[in-house]
Structure formats: structure tokens, C-alpha cells
Design a protein around this nucleic acid. Structure first.
Lengths: 212, 212
DNA sequence: CGCTAATCTAGAACAAGTTCCTACTCCGCC
DNA sequence: GGCGGAGTAGGAACTTGTTCTAGATTAGCG
């Protein structure tokens, strides 16, 4: 369960410290693994992502898979990082259009939610992994949280730093986002309920941004 | 993974429909199982709750354990129900004393948080189970959510029904509560951060109660 | 009391995540 | 071009949640 610092676990684009820079073949392997994971997850969710199958589908030995991603949770959290980066790019190209900051955040999250609805099984797999992650995945989960916070920060307004009050509001928004998503994914809330929860939380952002 | 309706899974004190009313020995077994679960969870958290050990410690065969609780997740969620009921009783005896509704909710949750801090491993086990639960545990998870909502509802003011706006606020509060707890339990947030998040979310309750 | 069905015990068996081992291959370097 | 070590393939082995089976025990009832 301990993370081996020498393993090629982190994203290559992060810190220059313990990341040994993957060779081309290694980067290709990593991509194959992530693609296989997405494929299996999209088909049957968390349970369908079986390490042996991921290994087989990505044409990599089981031991190699574990060298790249030290656990199933790490693998799925990395998949989420991957997806979030794509999403962030898309959102940068087409920013939300509302005038109120809170509404822009809500718009952004609803757009993200729509994207997740297209692959509900994949969403389920990633979110289950994210909330089930223990301390050994802290760094990766933190990175995911930072990505989401960035996405929301951009929606409030790209450029300036967020105020203290805005940051507090954003924290509650991300908590609500995660938790309401989980509730939806396990069939205990409707889509409109998710939307309502997001909207409620986003009023905090409007207030915080208005009172600056 | 399917719940067998004939199994003695539900709390005996609930609906009179499919619950066959446990005999004394059966109720004793159920209690032994729950106590063993708490004991193991308190020692080492989610991973330390191993079904074979629970069975052994509660002097019940493995098959019997599974008859009472169809999965480890069911078992831990039932443990949480148990704990929450105790908590609710305690809170009823000593209600929060603040004057503002939002502050009463915050006070209630912080008191609950302090209780959880006394057995962090147990808290971890229960919360991990709660968020990892899939559709087969919907009913039980819903019941837990209802309990928490009731606790918060009582804090707002026991007696009257909540308004629509209050309900929306309470939903965000519970989302924030769950998610910030998970963040704390996996070592990614400090205690004061948890408190701050709860306070932020609770301002929504103050507003909703003020605008009624 | 004696019967029958349900429940329980003990333990084997199975499934999937994880670890470990051995031989083979690739990479950087002399 | 050859060497040494890191990386990889292939697969056995181990762990723990879950299921299944066969033989006791118990509960309820005539």
C-alpha cells in the first residue's frame, strides 16, 4: 500500500523532483493503460475495471500495471486527472456566459455534469475511487481537488486571486459537488436534485464575490 | 450483491412489513456482531474490519454474519445507523444553545465532530463505507441521511416543518459535512478547516431561516 | 413429545486486488 | 559490439470479501 517514489506514478508535467521522465515507449504504455481503464470503466463502472483486464487490454503485464499505478484507486484517480485536464481545456475555450459569478460557477458545474452524464459508468468509477481513496493517494486526490478548484476559480474570474471569502465558498461548492454527484451516481438523487444542490451552494459564491 | 428481503437485515424497530421480528437469540447475535464491528473498526479502521474476524469475535459463523448483513458495506452502514441513533438521543437531551439557527446547526455538527474525533478509526470505517456504498445499499444509506437530516432539522428547531429554502440549505450542509469529514479522515484537511467549512455552509441555514 | 422448516456452524471454494518470482528485453554507456 | 542494470512479460501465490455445501441445532406447531 505504500507509494514507491521511484515508480513512474506522477504526471510527467508536474514537479521536476522524483519523476524520472518516461521514455517514449513508457509514455505510450501509460496512455494505453489509461485508455483501457476508461474503456472498461465506461462499459461497467468501478467493478468492471479489473486489474487483470486492464493489463490485458493495454497489452502490459500485471506487474507493469502496478509499477505505473500502485493500486486500482491510483489508476482511477489518475484517470480522473486526465479527464479533468481535458475538461479544463474545453472550458477555457468556451467560458461560461452568465453575468453573476455564482451563476457562472453553476453553469460551469452543470456543463461538467452533462459531460459526466454521457459516460455515467466512467463517472461512477472515478468518483467512487476518489472518495474511497485513503492516505496513500492523498497527493493525487489533492491534485484532483486543485484542478476542480481551478476550474471553479476560472469561472469566478480568470486572472485575479480569489478572496478569502470566495475561497471558503468555493470549498463548500466543491464539497457539495462531490457529495451530490455521489448521491446521484448511487441512484439516491435525481438530476434536478443535483442541479438544485449546486445552485444552492453557488449562492454562497455570489455573496462572497458581491461582498468583496 | 442483491438484498434478500427475508434476511434479518433491517432494524427491528422500523416498518412492520417484511421484518420477521428477530428472536431474542437473534437480536443478541445482531448486537454481538455490531459490537465486534465497532471494536475492530475502532482499532484499525475500515481495513481492520475483516468479515472473518467479525464473525469470530462475535462468535457467529461467517455464513450467519452474511445472513444478517449481506456485505461489509451493509455492516458498516448499519453500525453508523446505530451510532447516529445514540447521538440523536444525546443531542435531544442536550440541545444546542446558540440563538441563531445556523449557529445551532454548526454547534450540533461540531459536537458530533468532536464525538467522531474520539474514535477516528471507527469514523473512518463508517464514512468510507457510506460513500463507497453502491445501489444495493441505497435504502440503508438513505436512512442514515435521513437521520442526519433529522439531527440538523432538530437543531434548526424541533417541532415545525422545515421550509423549502431551509431544506435546500440543509442538503448543502449535509453534503459539506460528509465531504469535509472524508477530507479530514484521509488526512487532507485539518480540524480547523473542517470547522471553517461547516461554518461556511451553515450561513446558508441562517439566511434561509431568516428569510422565512 | 415428535416432526418439519428455518437457522446456524464449520469450512471449502471462488473472485479480484495485490505481491512476488524468474527469465527475457531494452536502455544508456563503455 | 558488448555489459550491467532497470524495466517488462508471464504467471504463481497470497489476501480478503463473498458464495456455497453438508451436517447440526433451534423454533414453532400439531
Amino acid at each position: 500500500m505504500t507509494v514507491d517514489a521511484s515508480a513512474p506514478t506522477g504526471t510527467p508535467a508536474s514537479a521536476p523532483s522524483p519523476v524520472p521522465a518516461l521514455t517514449e515507449r513508457q509514455e505510450a504504455r501509460r496512455q494505453r493503460i489509461l485508455r483501457a481503464t476508461q474503456q472498461l470503466a465506461a462499459r461497467g463502472g468501478f467493478d468492471a475495471v479489473q486489474m487483470r483486464e486492464v493489463a490485458e487490454l493495454s497489452e502490459v503485464a500485471l506487474g507493469t500495471l502496478y509499477r505505473y499505478f500502485p493500486s486500482k484507486i491510483h489508476l482511477l484517480v489518475a484517470t480522473m486527472q486526465d479527464q479533468l485536464e481535458q475538461l479544463h481545456d474545453q472550458l477555457r475555450r468556451k467560458p461560461p456566459i452568465s453575468t453573476d459569478p455564482g451563476e457562472r460557477v453553476a453553469e460551469t458545474l452543470m456543463r461538467t455534469f452533462k459531460a459526466l452524464q454521457r459516460e455515467p459508468h466512467l463517472a461512477e468509477a472515478m468518483m467512487r475511487a476518489l472518495t474511497f481513496a485513503d492516505r496513500s493517494v492523498s497527493a493525487e486526490v489533492d491534485s484532483v481537488n486543485r484542478l476542480i478548484t481551478d476550474v471553479i476559480g476560472d469561472a469566478i474570474h480568470a486572472g485575479r486571486q480569489l478572496t478569502r471569502a470566495e475561497l471558503a465558498a468555493v470549498r463548500v461548492v466543491t464539497h457539495t459537488w462531490h457529495s451530490t454527484l455521489i448521491t446521484w451516481l448511487s441512484g439516491r438523487a435525481s438530476i434536478s436534485q443535483v442541479k438544485a444542490d449546486i445552485d444552492t451552494a453557488c449562492t454562497l459564491v455570489s455573496q462572497a464575490a458581491g461582498a468583496e
